[in-house]
């Protein structure tokens, strides 16, 4: 059975997310175009990766989301990365936004993301396919 999220502490920790996730932040694409973070589309990442000489985009499917053992403010997200479906787990703040293909920004706690960053955000769910990066040539 799905477990209910733990109740959050009444004290709100200061946000420690990178500043570029705040609504209105200016992002430069690989071709030099400037866009606000909330206006980014899937194609922006795909086209930027195509231009990049070092980076390529991988599809990372969310396999599992669970609370962190270390803090209720964190979640552990397990991804299946790339064509080889390598298993990679990351521990992130619950409000940390991932970009879901064809959908946009999503986080484990979208209400908190919107509250802290004003970034429009949907709920990250198992099965979502997120954009991640890897190196074009590892050899």
């Amino acid at each position: 059975a799905p477990s209910a999220p733990p109740s959050l502490s009444s004290t709100v920790a200061p946000p420690s997310l990178p500043p570029y996730f705040i609504k209105g932040s200016i992002i430069q694409l690989a071709d030099g175009e400037l866009k606000r973070v909330e206006d980014l589309k899937t194609e922006d990442f795909i086209q930027s990766a195509e231009i990049s000489t070092e980076l390529k985009i991988d599809s990372s499917t969310v396999e599992r989301i669970e609370g962190s053992h270390t803090s209720p403010n964190f979640a552990v997200v397990q991804f299946s990365v790339g064509e080889h479906r390598a298993q990679v787990s990351v521990e992130v703040l619950v409000e940390y936004p991932f970009f879901v293909f064809g959908q946009g920004w999503s986080s484990c706690c979208p209400d908190r993301t919107t509250q802290l960053l004003e970034l429009p955000c949907t709920k990250l769910s198992v099965g979502d396919v997120c954009i991640s990066l890897t190196l074009k040539n590892l050899r």
Binding site: Y20, L40, V81, V88, S132, L133, T134
Partner: peptide, 25 residues
């Protein structure tokens, strides 16, 4: 006097995670 501040510009690749499978063979 308030001097105009330049707006920070962030590269696109900062926004998506670098998920690298651990090298296991």
């Amino acid at each position: 006097n308030v001097e105009p501040r330049s707006v920070p510009v962030f590269p696109w690749h900062s926004l998506v995670p670098f998920l690298e499978p651990s090298q296991s063979g």
